[in-house]
């Protein structure tokens, strides 16, 4: 109970802060739209490669870009925590009886909400450009769920790094190191059919690919067996990351 209440109060604080930065809000809305337009144009012709297996690239791209935006946004969630560390806010909070888990969960929830809003905008733009959510409402919800689970996991991971490294440079470098490779080791922008065998092999163990697979299967209205497995794996991954981040407060306390 206290965990949930603390999470909610801390989440509201972050949402309030975000809403007070209208420029940030505008950028985070325009950015994903830009991705859809840009990638949609750049890779337009790849659908003509024999075996790609999709009629329109925007149709193929919409769920993938939703995941990419989730990944890029959430990966830097730890930066906010670092700002709190630098400003003494985290120490002030840690000296209260607040649930440690809630300090992380509030940030994860904040990242997840952002992710869902952005995914909604992306799908909307994609539909305007001709994409069709064949999976209907459940399919769209699957996109939101997979995006927010992946976002939650990376937000947790990013916050854990922030607590352990306590340096902006390190968090940025580590997340950059992870974000792009894990994007390319997934079927986010390239059809699974056209991947080299080894990448297809590696991608099976890549949470980003789990999210892309679940989102695309949902969006396309495919049989849900693989989607459900991917969502379960993602949920477990998100829980592990959140748990690690919460445990990192112990490390923080020892080092401080």
């Amino acid at each position: 109970m206290e965990f949930l209440r603390d999470t909610w109060h801390l989440f509201l604080r972050l949402i309030r802060a975000t809403m007070r930065m209208p420029v940030f809000v505008i950028i985070s809305i325009v950015q994903p739209v830009l991705w859809v337009l840009l990638f949609g144009q750049l890779f337009k012709s790849v659908t003509t490669i024999p075996g790609f297996g999709a009629s329109s690239y925007v149709q193929f791209l919409a769920p993938g870009i939703s995941i990419m935006t989730a990944l890029f946004g959430a990966a830097y969630s730890g930066m906010g925590l670092l700002a709190d560390i630098d400003r003494g806010v985290l120490d002030r909070l840690l000296a209260t009886p607040v649930s440690r888990g809630a300090l992380i969960a509030g940030r994860i929830l904040h990242a997840a909400v952002q992710v869902v809003v952005q995914a909604a905008i992306i799908l909307l733009v994609a539909v305007i450009l001709g994409a069709r959510p064949h999976g209907g409402l459940p399919g769209v919800l699957a996109v939101f769920l997979s995006a927010s689970l992946l976002g939650s996991a990376f937000a947790g991971f990013s916050n854990a790094l922030a607590l352990i490294a306590r340096r902006q440079e390190l968090v940025i470098a580590a997340m950059n190191f992870v974000v792009l490779p894990s994007t390319f080791l997934s079927s986010m922008i390239m059809s699974r059919n056209l991947m080299p065998g080894w990448i297809r092999g590696v991608s099976r163990f890549n949470p980003v690919n789990w999210a892309v697979t679940a989102a695309r299967d949902g969006f396309e209205g495919r049989a849900p067996s693989e989607m459900l497995l991917c969502l379960a794996l993602l949920a477990a991954f998100a829980l592990v990351c959140g748990f690690l981040a919460t445990r990192s407060f112990g490390r923080y306390r020892k080092a401080m």
Binding site: R87, G88, V89, R92, L93, A95
Partner: peptide, 12 residues
């Protein structure tokens, strides 16, 4: 606990 560095959330 009132820390040496302020703990105020300046955005709020």
């Amino acid at each position: 606990y009132v820390a040496q560095a302020s703990g105020v959330d300046v955005t709020a």
